[in-house]
């Protein structure tokens, strides 16, 4: 087990390294033209461009630039923080040339919003999706199964942003007029009830989509598992049906679901962009998109990196848990 964990740790470190390299290539090398102009935001002044070129070392060779990029990331940027910019520190994600704040600061402020959205939605969809999937598999071809699978098919086909707009239309001022469900984000510490009510719609919309995936997956896996020989053996030796399904069927069919759940949460921290945009939550995804739209690349680079690290760490956790549950994984 120890060796397996070490191997996975090295792999996670490699992923993070590759992602920094890819991020560098995508943003520094791939696009044509003077990178200093691109990094300086939409309407850069002559002074800003000169400043950017100097601070990012853009007049030096590419490997040297990459080195500067990584060095700043590893050692932090507090020492070279430009005047008037707050929140520099570790890890050094540099500054947003648009808002003249440290990208690190922005991420710390917006992180809780995205995490609230992702975790709440995840709990909702896991419970919903898995229970619908189990009921559907056990009552195969019943009316309930058909309705549930029809709903799931609709769920995987529906664009999140459309569902979000529809929900806002139905519950908003034109429809039922429930003010508590309005867009925006309220700090949990200042108003827990407001925090909850502002997140109910985003959670539901997000969960609807994923619950549909999980219901289909759980149903398919459970049906496949229940066709296995060892289930027949369990039944033949006289185990009550309840025990056959709960102890033997679910255990095997839910492990892949658990793996996917871990990865989905991690990816969601970056992938909830659309839900955040529709409901104006101003989380990390929002920040990245707005920065991308105004060509404020240091901000995009910063968010991308943080999310890639989150994904690498999460997949490490998932793999280790999985190896603990299933000994075959450790030795392959």
């Amino acid at each position: 087990m120890g060796r397996y964990v070490i191997r996975r740790l090295l792999w996670a470190a490699l992923i993070v390294f590759v992602v920094t390299l890819l991020t560098f290539v995508i943003f520094y090398v791939m696009p044509p033209g003077d990178p200093a102009i691109r990094f300086a935001g939409k309407q850069p002044t002559e002074a800003t461009i000169r400043e950017v070129r100097e601070q990012l070392g853009l007049d030096k060779s590419l490997p040297k630039q990459y080195y500067t990029f990584v060095e700043r990331l590893v050692t932090g940027d507090a020492a070279e923080c430009p005047q008037g910019v707050e929140g520099c520190g570790w890890p050094g994600l540099w500054i947003s040339y648009d808002s003249r704040t440290a990208v690190r600061q922005e991420i710390i402020e917006r992180g809780p919003r995205t995490i609230s959205l992702a975790l709440g939605g995840a709990i909702l969809w896991l419970v919903l999706g898995v229970s619908i999937g189990i009921i559907s598999a056990l009552k195969r071809r019943s009316l309930a199964d058909r309705l549930a699978m029809g709903f799931a098919l609709f769920g995987i086909s529906a664009p999140v942003f459309w569902l979000g707009l529809l929900a806002l239309f139905i519950f908003g001022s034109e429809g039922l007029g429930i003010d508590a469900f309005s867009t925006g984000y309220v700090e949990f510490s200042s108003d827990p009830v407001g925090w909850f009510s502002h997140l109910v719609l985003p959670w539901s919309v997000l969960a609807l989509l994923y619950a549909a995936f999980y219901a289909r997956m759980t149903r398919g896996n459970l049906i496949d598992t229940l066709g296995e020989d060892y289930i027949r053996t369990a039944r033949a030796k006289g185990l009550p049906e309840r025990k056959v399904i709960m102890k033997h069927g679910l255990r095997a069919s839910l492990t892949p679901v658990v793996t996917m759940f871990g990865m989905d949460i991690a990816l969601l921290i970056g992938g909830a962009v659309i839900t955040e945009t529709v409901f104006n939550l101003q989380g990390l995804g929002n920040f990245a998109v707005n920065s991308a739209a105004s060509a404020d690349l240091p901000a995009v680079v910063g968010v991308t990196l943080v999310l890639a690290v989150a994904v690498a760490v999460m997949s490490l956790v998932v793999d280790v848990v999985y190896a603990y549950l299933d000994p075959r994984v450790r030795y392959s």
Partner: peptide, 22 residues
């Protein structure tokens, strides 16, 4: 294991910055 939408946004933004593309 990459945040796909974000990388896509990044590439789209980087490649749309000038008319010549990437």
């Amino acid at each position: 294991s990459m945040p796909i939408l974000l990388f896509a946004i990044g590439i789209a933004a980087a490649c749309s910055a000038t008319a010549t593309g990437c």
